[in-house]
Design a protein around this nucleic acid. Structure first.
Lengths: 186, 186
DNA sequence: TCGTTATTGAAACAGTCGTACCATATACTC
DNA sequence: GAGTATATGGTACGACTGTTTCAATAACGA
């Protein structure tokens, strides 16, 4: 008895908050501007999430969930040469539409380096992708549980993403990926 | 006439402030704790640097200067195979002693993604290294002004650094670099 | 000693931050 | 209607932020 709880509100707020963080970044996040943009109040944010830290944790989990879904949706092209698959992944992840996600990705990593205690899973977001990518590049792996190849592939992708986001030089980074694809194939 | 200026004080403070930022990170930097650790006052920091933003800019310039010097000191091994040179660079940059510098590196990059206006040079710190590294890997380059090879090499190094700092898995990242060295040599 | 310039301390200002407190409103069962 | 649990608004607290203001001190040349 009493007024029924409305769990949908928290979910709706979480979705909007994730949009906001993807758009504005994590570093300067503040409850009052966030609440204003979401047409709610700091009071309600704390009511639903308990504290800012828990809100941020929920937002990051949601962002990672979204990223995983989008990646899974896109990955399918298992046919084709190694180059084609690599270029396909690069084209997708480096597209402008993914920029907010990539930005948050780097921001979280940097924050984790300064405050490791906040992220008890020690880079789970990194190794997460290995299962998916390991399957995609199985034919250039040395074995079914080869972790080195996906590590290298992801390093190239992240390293070039780093370069691209810092310099904006798409031509040079695209060509560097092509070069890597060549090397992998021989 | 009048009391003579003491430019050495600013330099001394800058050096100490750089140490402090390398140790504590850039994100949560605050004048009062910084001043306390440096045995000075916020008043003097602003007196010497004008504003916090200018102080940070000076610290970042100093940090980059230090990094460039250390890199130049280390690079010499131009002899030896491509693998040896690559592994030498990786061993040096991924060593624990470089961790504070690497951390600041990632932190600045992330901050630059959120506040591009603060960094008008659009990733000059990135392309900086190309001249040096381009010379080091000239024999695997396609030409004297080949930018693709150094781009790829640095991408692998940064990408693996990202992985290593996030997961702490040195064995896997070391082996991934070896694999890349193999690929590069064939 | 006096004038001048550099340096420094203490305090305050105006703002933002996360959060807690208190009241009130809303929606339901009985 | 009463009773009850959820959902809000408003407000204020205490701690922080970068920066400014005002006054005092220190080191020099004359």
């Amino acid at each position: 008895m009493g007024r029924p709880a409305d769990p949908a509100r928290r979910e709706r707020t979480l979705a909007q908050a994730t949009d906001y963080v993807l758009a504005h970044g994590l570093a300067g996040l503040s409850l009052r501007p966030l609440a204003a943009a979401l047409d709610t109040s700091p009071r309600m944010l704390l009511y639903d999430f308990g504290s800012k830290q828990e809100l941020v944790a929920a937002v990051l989990a949601e962002a990672r969930r979204r990223g995983a879904v989008r990646l899974a949706e896109h990955l399918p092209p298992k046919t084709g040469s190694v180059q084609e698959r690599l270029q396909s992944i690069w084209a997708w992840i480096s597209a402008d539409e993914r920029a907010p996600f990539v930005r948050l990705f780097f921001e979280v990593h940097a924050d984790g380096l300064v405050h490791p205690e906040t992220y008890p899973d020690r880079g789970e977001a990194i190794t997460d992708w290995f299962d998916t990518l390991g399957a995609t590049f199985r034919d250039v792996s040395t074995g079914p549980d080869d972790t080195v190849t996906p590590t290298l592939v992801m390093a190239v992708v992240r390293g070039l993403l780093f370069d691209l986001t810092a310099t904006g030089d798409r031509h040079r980074t695209d060509r560097a990926l092509d070069r890597f694809a060549e090397l992998l194939n021989r």
